[in-house]
């Protein structure tokens, strides 16, 4: 059933996002094409500058639209009129959340990849080659310093962390929307309000935690021992830190998921 949900979810995404994603590639190609006729005339500069502006605008539109459509798919398909059908399909609530989440994350990643490809197309030529060479050089130097194995691990950790963070971020939005829909009216405003209230609450808690922590005075010996330990185990600590971040983010995501699930099960309130 999740497969079928994902299939229909993708059809909906394709319909709203495919045109702008293709437009982005189109504009990128156009921008590259214009550069063939590079010269010093004012006409060319105007053309070039406007193409660059269009390209940047297209990138912004693409990213913003992906985000908006992802949120809308969740809100409209579940809690507006369409929800009457969605929630009477023989599918569990968790399957719905799961399908929406998988699609939102995949589409977001796909958009980012498409933006990257478009930038490559737009700048295709010596410059891009140089860029890749430079990136390769930097990576080589780093791996010489810390070892190739370590570098690979850092990259894997970074990618996993980014993806887990993306999942968790969507799950946070979902939780806010799901909580927001329990309101009698102004459900979207309620969701936004919950999001910011939660955001500021976590900020305040973090600030308080830091203040408490920094007010504690440790002995000089202890501080020296700590900094010595950090110096000696820097690489391991970095890995541990990454994994701690990944696990904590995943746990938070799971909590947000449970919030959405429980609210759906107990307090569904379709408009």
């Amino acid at each position: 059933m999740v497969k079928k949900l994902i299939k229909h979810e993708f059809i909906a995404y394709l319909r709203s996002l495919l045109p702008i994603e293709l437009a982005l590639v189109g504009i990128a190609t156009l921008l590259r094409f214009i550069q063939i006729f590079e010269n010093d005339s004012t006409g060319y500069s105007i053309l070039f500058v406007s193409a660059v502006i269009a390209f940047v605008a297209a990138i912004i539109v693409c990213i913003v639209m992906t985000f908006i459509v992802s949120i809308q798919r969740y809100y409209k398909n579940l809690f507006k009129a369409e929800g009457y059908l969605t929630f009477t399909l023989p599918v569990t609530h968790s399957q719905h959340i799961f399908a929406k989440l998988i699609c939102a994350v995949s589409v977001t990643v796909a958009t980012l990849i498409n933006v990257f490809i478009s930038v490559c197309i737009a700048t295709a030529g010596e410059f891009t080659v140089e860029l890749f060479k430079a990136a390769g050089y930097i990576l080589n130097r780093i791996s010489e310093n810390i070892g190739a194995g370590n570098l690979t691990f850092y990259i894997i950790e970074f990618v996993i962390a980014a993806i887990v963070a993306l999942f968790t971020e969507y799950l946070l939005f979902y939780a806010c929307i799901t909580l927001g829909q329990t309101a009698k009216k102004n459900r979207v405003a309620a969701a936004v309000g919950i999001y910011f209230a939660y955001y500021y609450a976590t900020q305040i808690l973090a600030t308080i935690a830091i203040m408490i922590f920094s007010s504690i005075t440790f002995s000089h010996e202890f501080m020296m021992a700590v900094s010595d330990f950090i110096d000696k185990n820097a690489k391991q600590l970095l890995h541990a830190g990454s994994w701690l971040f990944i696990v904590l983010t995943a746990v938070m995501g799971f909590v947000y998921y449970l919030v959405s699930l429980k609210v759906m099960q107990k307090k569904l309130n379709i408009e």
Binding site: A12, R15, Y84, P90, V91
Partner: peptide, 21 residues
């Protein structure tokens, strides 16, 4: 009410529940 009941209940809501596009 749940997955098993939804398999055997066919429901016509009183609003436009179909995706108009």
């Amino acid at each position: 009410p749940g997955v098993e009941s939804k398999k055997v209940v066919s429901y016509l809501p009183d609003n436009n529940f179909l995706n108009s596009w």
